[in-house]
Amino acid sequence: MFERLGLVLMGIGALFLLLSALGLWRMPDTLSRMHASTKASTLGILLVVLGAVCHTPELWFKLGLLGLFVLLTNPLSASILGHSSYRKEGFYSPDHIDALKEESL
């Protein structure tokens, strides 16, 4: 029962990872690509880790630590990358609204 739940969770997580990789193809510029890839892949890997804990419960400590580390590091690096990408080349906006320009980075 629990094992099957784990398999289902890991499948959903893998689908989210596939979605994040396909989002790289679909989006028009860098910041939109990060919007697609970072959030979806973080959610996907958390789901994979949760499903793995349900599948083999004796590895729960290591897998939980792995999920915590990914949750800590992945948004940090994505945020730094977004800052520098914005400062280098701006972003794609169809109606020319740039709300970040007034703030001091």
Binding site: L72, L76, S79, I80
Partner: peptide
């Protein structure tokens, strides 16, 4: 220095 990265480093350095 970079404020966001400083907070991240404070949490991640001991880990």
């Amino acid at each position: 220095h970079d404020t966001l990265l400083q907070i991240g480093a404070q949490v991640l350095f001991p880990l």
